[in-house]
Design a protein around this nucleic acid. Structure first.
Lengths: 120, 120
DNA sequence: CAATCATATGAACGAATGATCATATGTTCA
DNA sequence: TGAACATATGATCATTCGTTCATATGATTG
C-alpha cells in the first residue's frame, strides 16, 4: 500500500510524494466518504430537492406533494422512500393518510448551505 | 395555475388546499431549486467527494489525485471539470502541471454539514 | 366484510452518468 | 523546433436512475 506512492501515474512517476502521503493519512475512511456521497446523491435530484423544500415549509401528505409538484403519486412515494432511507424525512400516519416532514434541522442546514453557494 | 388546487390527485380530490396553497407561495423559483439539485448532484458521487476531501487537505495536481485515488488521469480530469463548472474547485497552472484546490469555504462547510449528518 | 381511498411496491423502459481508451492541446527544455 | 510530459477532450459502453403503469397493502366507513 505505502509503496503505491511510486506507482505509475500518467506515463511515468510525476507524484509529489510528500503531499500524496500526507493527504493519504488525513482522508477519512472509505466508508464515511461513500456514505457522504450517498447522502448528497439523494439531495442531487430536482424532484427530491423540491420535496425537501416543500416539507421545509410544512408537513404534507403524499397526495398533496404529488399535486403540488405535478408528478404521479407513485413517483413521489418512491422518492419519499429514498429520502426516508437516508433519514432526511420522517413520517407519521393519520388514518389513511401519511404525513411527511423533514427529519431534523440538519436537513435544513444542508439546504441552506447549498442555497448560499448557489445564490452567491 | 391557481385552480390546480382542485386538480385530481390519486383518484379524487384529496388535497388539503390551504396547506398546498401556502406552500406553493413559499417555495423558491424553479431555477434556484434546479441549480441547488445540480450542486448536490455534483457532490453526490464518491469519486468527486474523494477528490474534494483530498483537496480539503492540500492543493494537488491531476496526476497526484489520480494516483491517490487509483483512477485514470482521464477520469480525474473529467471530474475536475465538472467540479470546476460548479465552482467547487479552482485551478492554477505551474508550468506543465495544474494544481487544483477548493474554490472557497462554502465547499468545506457543505462537506462538514454532510459529515455531521452521516456520523450522527 | 365489501367498497373506497391513500399509500407502497415491483417491473419495465428511456435517459443520464462515469469510467476507459484514444487522441488532442498546451507547456517545457534540449 | 521537436521530443517528452501533464492535462483536456471526444467517443463509447455498461450501469444506474427516475418515471410510469399496474397492482398490492393498509386503513376507514357504510
Amino acid at each position: 500500500m505505502e509503496d503505491a506512492y511510486n506507482a505509475d501515474c500518467c506515463d511515468f512517476i510525476c507524484a509529489h510524494e510528500e503531499i500524496v502521503s500526507t493527504v493519504r493519512r488525513e482522508i477519512p475512511d472509505e466508508d464515511v466518504l461513500y456514505d457522504l456521497a450517498e447522502l448528497f446523491r439523494i439531495f442531487g435530484d430536482s424532484t427530491r430537492i423540491r420535496i425537501l423544500y416543500v416539507l421545509s415549509v410544512s408537513e404534507m401528505c403524499v397526495c398533496d406533494i404529488a399535486q403540488l409538484l405535478g408528478l404521479t403519486q407513485s413517483a413521489i412515494s418512491h422518492q419519499l422512500k429514498a429520502l426516508k432511507n437516508t433519514r432526511l424525512v420522517k413520517s407519521r400516519r393519520d388514518g389513511k393518510t401519511v404525513f411527511y416532514s423533514l427529519a431534523d434541522d440538519h436537513v435544513r442546514a444542508i439546504l441552506g448551505q447549498g442555497v448560499e453557494h448557489v445564490e452567491e
